[in-house]
Design a protein around this nucleic acid. Structure first.
Lengths: 129, 129
DNA sequence: TACCTTGTATTAGTAATCATAATACAGATA
DNA sequence: TATCTGTATTATGATTACTAATACAAGGTA
């Protein structure tokens, strides 16, 4: 999977990397059980420090998206993605985004249609606005 | 409208304040055209510095949620909330959240239903997960 | 054994953020 | 004149974020 980073922007590198991988999993570009590059390999490919990659991996592990074996490296988590409780922070962020949309005059039908569209292809995003 | 801040958490005060106001607008607790407290008044009520309130207000103004008249203070923006182009950052954040949901195994129907529910009452959030 | 790979703990240093405070100013209003 | 708006300025202290360099631990393999 191709990963591009914006080294000039304000978003931290490790967060960009984490988000790219989450998007990859969500889109199916990264299949369940698929191996991720080693921290050193990915760091070299991206031209960043290995600890920065490690920070992203650790974050993904703590959030339940990947598993890390000290011997064999990281891979996309197979099971248990369907956590019983969805993260509270996730719900708060979603509520805030929807509140912003309402404040800007978006109609309920538009929102629902947009969410359904993004669900199909999160990397493309919503082209209809 | 009642505003509560978490002074111990990690989220910046000015951001909490900004988000609370956005939620208030989105839920209709703050009507279009309604006046907001002055920066000094709100700062005193909340026990924070006036410049912190000013930072939140300036952010809300730059994002198109409120209008600020130097004479009469701030008020919820009446028109033009329906911006022709929805903020790119908003779409990116929504795409990321939906990708996270997919990665965790949420079904499309569940997502749509949840979004519709939150749209009705963003402050309540999604209780169904 | 020797060497490769893997992740990770530690340390460090630079930079940025955040909240606050004290003023001061411009403009409108009562 | 006195008082209310927002705002620009400057400063300060504390904290945190971010990235990097290095060394270590553990397992695989020739």
């Amino acid at each position: 999977m191709l990963i591009t980073l914006d080294m000039t922007g304000e978003e931290p590198i490790y967060l960009q990397l984490r988000n790219e991988i989450v998007l990859g999993i969500g889109c199916g570009l990264l299949a369940a059980g698929e191996a991720l590059p080693s921290v050193r390999q990915l760091a070299e490919d991206l031209g960043i420090n290995a600890m920065t990659v490690n920070k992203a991996y650790t974050l993904l592990k703590d959030q339940g998206f990947i598993e890390i074996d000290r011997r064999q490296g990281a891979r996309v988590r197979v099971a248990a993605q369907r956590t019983p409780h969805f993260p509270v922070l996730w719900q708060k962020q979603l509520s805030l985004l929807i509140a912003e949309a309402r404040a800007r005059g978006l109609e309920k039908e538009e929102l629902v249609a947009l969410c359904a569209q993004i669900f199909e292809n999160p990397k493309q995003g919503g082209e209809g606005l």
